[in-house]
Design a protein around this nucleic acid. Structure first.
Ligand SMILES: Nc1ccn([C@H]2C[C@H](O)[C@@H](COP(=O)(O)OP(=O)(O)OP(=O)(O)O)O2)c(=O)n1
Ligand SMILES: [Mg+2]
Ligand SMILES: [Mg+2]
Length: 1082
DNA sequence: GGATGTTGCGAGC
DNA sequence: CATCGCTCGCAACATCC
């Protein structure tokens, strides 16, 4: 609408931002003295020639409106033009609407007749024939109405139907059915198990249980059967009942439903597990009001007490997925929608946050590949670094979309437009396939917009477990195929490899083809490959390779290739630099060629030493980044951020949330083995011009970011310390809780937890009196805190309060805010005033504005020693600044002298330090005790400590030193299991197999025991999800048998038939012992 | 001028 | 009716001594 207005303001704002604090205040002062015209003068002076200013204005408006149109989404995937061209050429057929629908209908109609991969037993096949008709009909009908959303429901029903038929069949066969021990249980099997998924399926159904073959947010399982979980999945399933497959077997054998907890798979994360041991005694204490308020998982809670009370409730087994309604502080509209006030919000959020998963996956991968390097001989590293290298950048095509789609056989990824998303409206499109992209849909878009562009687009669910699985396959393959000097994971779907050595005597193109073919065979997901001589060019080549292709950018073609590359596409060049450059060059889009004329020195002045140099080199296709796997994990920080669902009304709600965040942080720290000594609280505050409710449901909208950090003194992972420090930090930035849209914690200055332990031990050894030690730390904290309080002295109110912080950090202003005449300021034109206010607020120069009743604005809620809480009113003063160094005598705090302030949540302070001293292997298992202590408010901490020490003693056997053995066991993905008690590489295994096959054929076939052992070995690999290797080894046998067969014409006739018999024997044994294990992976 | 802290940007996305 | 907008490192800049 009023574009002109917008334009001016946007530019005015960037002008304001470009000023340093001093000039900024000076600017306000001059304004508030009435010189309104100064504004435009200054403005133009800064933004260079007038014409430039005009263009900039145009660009930034364009950018702004683009922003609005696309969503306020921070990501910015640009359209892949190349891909669109391909699509237009028909290589990626975007089928017209009607024909798409027809195709779908056809696919779906056929679907029910296809044999489902899952229930592979003959019984099920028979049952299929018994009763499939009605189901088929119902599916057909649903299709008729085009209701694909319910398709899976009916698929589910179909399975139930099959199961019923199977049961019927068994009844006829056996005349009677076994005891229905699993009545009321709904079982889901995850990954490879022993017995197999099919067998479990059969057993469960046979014994009265319900079996489901996939978990969705809508379906619900009472138990998840699983023998091995990736760490990531442990996280996903941490609130579920995950049991080992043996549970099923034993239940069946004993003919009763055994306590699943005896078979629990996830031990380390379930806080409450240990409670059974205490529960009998302390049952009453824990159902106090504290419990209701402070519990992280009410559902688990109840369930546990049921079991303690004794198992008489087969019928009302709580359901894993059900969201607890009603109790506690949560926001229910029509459905269960939690905001950050609800205790279940956090685990739920992280379990479903794609960005969280992506981040964690990335970190995990780095760690894994680091370990690989440690294990490997370093020889490869020193190889010819100076030569021209072959760098490949490999990336899955629309990864989430493809992977999720594999769980939706009724959809055709090549024809149907598909997007992965949680919901509708303002839900993000995480990934959309290339058909959807041909309509203009992009990753990161909101559903509303995507639907506008492509109304028939199908939305499918996330399937994080699948992404992990395919990625695992992918990475394992890369390791296994042994062609790379370096493998550097970039993300879950993306990797950089150095193939120089291999390509000295192999064709690059062939390698690309092979990789693409193999990965597709393994995962059914296409990857694209970009190849060139350095990381930069490989990355750029990848863009051209997509989708489903490869592109080899020869060094000689670099210059030509770079001509069409926009600087935005260069790695390391983001939005900010792009904007500044387009401003600088006075043109809308900037190509690499536009930068060529600029001298290096100019780029350096503009963007700084490093960035300038990098830019200078990149536009010339130069990139000397060495592709070397880092050899050390030197993590610098651990952080937990939530910028979704943050809606608080009361400070206490935030306090509770901060504690929960700290616990999350604590868990991560424990898992990573770090303590840290510097804490930063990051807050996102609704921008004053942003609506209270941002366009995105429960989103953050446009915000200003505030950071506040403090030294903790000693490295810690204690959630009590972290949480309470966070509360203190919050009280130092004066932001009303209602304005918060995002909260994050970040711990830096990390120290390896074992070092902390070592230091502590050293100290303890010297002093012995550990409790005193603790107390001293405690006091020290208190002193710190008191001095913090003291530095805030009450003083006469100002019209606009300035935080003490401001003065501490910027004491040398020549222009003080006090120079500003606020009355004149108030009378400035409202748009200008607004911009100034926003900028003031962004610079944290304004504490609280427009809050007439700010008298109590800084309430300090602190737990006191007695357990009650006290409110301390603090009014910050802009005029009086204490010298921060000298702790001043305690004169000014009348209100807060009664009792010493306790900095910690009840519990925590003691046991956590004990915890830090435990060997990492048992640390996890004691967490629940800590949690327990907290819950029951057991103030007698000594027994807990004793208990921990005892536990440590008991477990001491398990605590191995770090030797070759240990290292080998750490990396599940990259290692092969021990073969005949030896550590072996894939190469070793392959040559052994060759030997074995050759040798066995001279004896008329393999020994049965050997085949069985081989089978067990594969099982072991399978349990590590190492499917590609397993298949490789299996294939290796075939290859060698083929090899022997091919030699047959050259041997004597008698030998020939003998060998043929041997081969036959091989095949028989493989079919009996090996292939059944693999059938579902082929 | 170096050590140290804070902020903003960019990478995954 | 909704939705799951995270996490890390580095470079530039600010400040302190
Ligand atoms: N705004 C975004 C962008 C990506 N992703 C997720 C989903 C993607 O599948 C995955 C990988 O990101 P890519 O950038 O590799 O995008 P795609 O793999 O989806 O597409 P392509 O690589 O073919 O461009 O990350 C996301 O959640 N949100
Ligand atoms: Mg991808
Ligand atoms: Mg990617």
């Amino acid at each position: 609408m009023d574009d002109g207005e917008e334009e001016v303001n946007s530019n005015y704002n960037s002008f304001l931002r470009s000023l340093d604090n001093d000039s900024f205040i000076s600017h306000i002062t001059s304004l508030s003295q009435g010189h309104l015209h100064v504004r435009s003068q200054e403005f133009q002076a800064v933004s260079t020639p007038t014409k430039a200013a005009a263009t900039t204005a145009a660009t930034s408006t364009a950018a702004a409106s683009f922003d609005n149109a696309v969503s306020s989404d921070p990501f910015d995937d640009s359209v892949d033009e190349e891909a669109l061209v391909r699509i237009a050429r028909g290589e990626y057929n975007p089928t017209p609407l009607h024909s798409t629908q027809l195709d779908q209908r056809k696919d779906l109609a056929e679907q029910p007749q296809e044999q489902p991969e899952q229930p592979g037993t003959e019984q099920l096949e028979q049952s299929e024939q018994l009763e499939v008709q009605p189901v088929k009909q119902s599916i057909g009908q649903l299709h008729g109405f085009g209701d694909y959303a319910t398709y899976f429901h009916s698929k589910h029903l179909k399975q139930q139907h099959q199961d019923a038929a199977y049961l019927e069949w068994e009844r006829k066969r056996l005349k009677t059915l076994p005891k229905p021990i699993f009545t009321g249980c709904t079982i889901f099997v995850n990954g490879h198990t022993n017995p197999s998924i099919n067998e479990i399926h059969r057993l469960v159904v046979l014994h009265g249980g319900k079996f489901i073959s996939y978990l969705s947010s809508k379906s619900s399982a009472t138990h998840i059967v699983c023998d091995w979980l990736t760490p990531r999945k442990s996280d996903m399933f941490k609130n579920c009942r995950v049991v080992k497959a043996q549970w099923i077997v034993d239940c069946v054998e004993k003919e009763e439903l055994l306590d699943w907890k005896e078979y629990r798979l996830i031990k380390e994360i379930a806080y409450d597990q240990q409670r059974l041991q205490f529960g009998a005694i302390e049952e009453q204490t824990e159902e106090e009001e504290q419990n209701v308020h402070d519990d992280d998982n009410d559902e688990e809670e109840e369930e546990e007490s049921h079991f303690v009370g004794d198992s008489n409730e087969d019928d009302d087994i709580p359901v894993i997925d059900s969201i607890p309604e009603g109790k506690g502080v949560h926001k229910v509209k029509d459905k269960y929608v939690l905001d950050a006030r609800h205790p279940d919000f956090l685990p739920n959020f992280f379990a479903n946050s794609r960005l969280h998963h992506l981040s964690v996956w990335k970190a995990d991968l780095r760690l894994k590949f680091l370990r690989k390097v440690i294990k490997e001989k370093p020889s490869r590293f020193h190889k010819t670094q100076s030569d021209e290298r072959i760098i490949m950048h490999i990336d899955f095509d629309c990864f989430f979309a493809t992977a999720s789609c594999l769980g939706h056989p009724e959809l055709d990824i090549h024809k149907d437009p598909i997007a992965v998303s949680h919901g509708s409206r303002t839900s993000d499109v995480a990934s959309c396939n290339y058909v959807a992209r041909s309509f203009g849909v992009k990753n990161g878009m909101w559903i509303t917009q995507a639907k506008q562009l492509c109304p028939q687009m199908k939305i499918i669910d996330y399937d994080f477990a699948a992404y992990e699985k395919y990625s695992n396959e992918f990475y394992n393959y890369l390791i296994t195929c042994d062609c790379f000097d370096v493998i550097l994971p970039v993300s879950i779907d993306e990797v950089l490899v150095d193939a120089t050595t291999y390509c000295t005597n192999h064709s690059v193109e062939e390698l690309c083809k092979t990789i693409r073919k193999d990965v597709f065979t393994l995962t059914k997901c296409p990857v694209s490959v970009g190849v060139s001589s350095n990381v930069l060019l490989a990355k750029l080549a990848l863009r051209r390779a997509k989708p489903d292709g490869y592109f080899y950018l020869q060094p000689s073609e670099t210059t030509k290739f770079l001509q069409d590359v926009k600087i935005r596409d260069l790695p390391g060049i983001g939005r900010s630099i792009t904007e500044r450059l387009s401003h600088e060059l006075n043109q809308e889009t900037v190509n690499t060629t536009d930068i060529l004329p600029l001298p290096k020195s100019r780029l350096i002045t503009l963007f700084g030493e490093k960035t300038g140099t990098k830019l200078y080199q990149y536009v010339r296709g130069i990139d000397d980044t060495l592709l070397i796997t880092p050899t050390t994990v030197d993590r610098k920080s651990v952080s937990v951020d939530v910028n979704f669902g943050i809606r608080f009304e009361k400070v206490e709600e935030l306090d509770d949330f901060l504690i929960r965040l700290s616990k999350e942080m604590y868990m991560r720290l424990i898992n990573l083995g770090f303590c840290g000594s510097s804490l930063t609280l990051k807050l996102a505050r609704r921008r004053q011009d942003a609506p209270i409710n941002p366009p995105k449901f429960l989103g953050m909208g446009r915000c200003d970011i505030f950071n506040k950090s403090s030294r903790l003194g000693v490295p810690t992972n204690d959630w009590g310390v972290i949480g309470n420090e966070a509360k203190v930090l919050y009280r130092m930035v004066n932001i009303p809780v209602t304005e918060l849209r995002g909260v994050g914690l970040s711990l830096t200055r990390l120290v390896d937890i074992d070092n902390v332990k070592k230091n502590r031990q050293g100290r303890l050894g010297f002093k012995k009196g550990d409790v005193n030690d603790q107390f001293k730390e405690f006091q020290q904290q208190q002193v710190q805190f008191e001095s913090k309080l003291r530095s805030k002295t009450p003083s006469p109110k100002k019209r606009i309060g300035i935080t003490k912080d401001h003065f501490e950090k910027r004491p040398k202003f020549s222009h003080n805010l006090d120079d500003i005449d606020w009355d004149v300021f108030e009378s400035l034109p409202s748009d200008i005033k607004q911009e100034l206010e926003r900028e003031l607020s962004r610079r944290r120069m304004v504490a609280v504005k427009r809050e007439p009743n700010t008298k109590a604005y800084l309430q300090q809620l602190l737990p006191t020693q007695s357990g009650t809480t006290k409110y301390v009113r603090v009014i910050e003063s802009p005029t009086k600044r204490q010298s921060p160094k000298k702790g001043r005598p305690s004169s000014t705090k009348p209100s807060r002298s009664v009792s010493p302030v306790k900095l910690y949540e009840p519990s925590q302070s003691y046991d956590s330090s004990v915890l830090a001293e435990l060997p990492s292997s048992i640390r996890n298992s004691v967490l629940k005790d800590v949690e327990y202590t907290h819950k029951v408010k057991n103030l007698d901490l000594v027994p807990v400590r004793d208990k921990l020490l005892l536990l440590e003693k008991q477990r001491q056997v398990e605590v191995k030193t770090v030797d070759e053995d240990w290292v080998a066991r750490q990396s599940k993905v990259t290692e092969t299991p021990k073969f005949l008690d030896q550590y072996v590489s894939m190469r070793d295994l392959e040559s052994r197999i060759k030997e074995w096959v050759t040798m066995s054929l001279s004896q008329g076939g393999p020994h049965e025991d050997d085949v069985k052992y081989f089978g067990e070995y594969l099982d072991e690999m399978l349990s590590r999800q190492d499917i590609s290797r397993v298949l490789l080894l299996r294939k290796c046998i075939d290859t060698n048998l083929e090899l022997q067969k091919s030699k047959l014409p050259f041997v004597e006739e008698s030998t020939r038939s003998f060998i043929l018999e041997g081969i036959q024997d091989w095949n028989n044994q493989l079919a009996e012992y090996i292939d059944p294990k693999l059938v579902k992976y082929i």
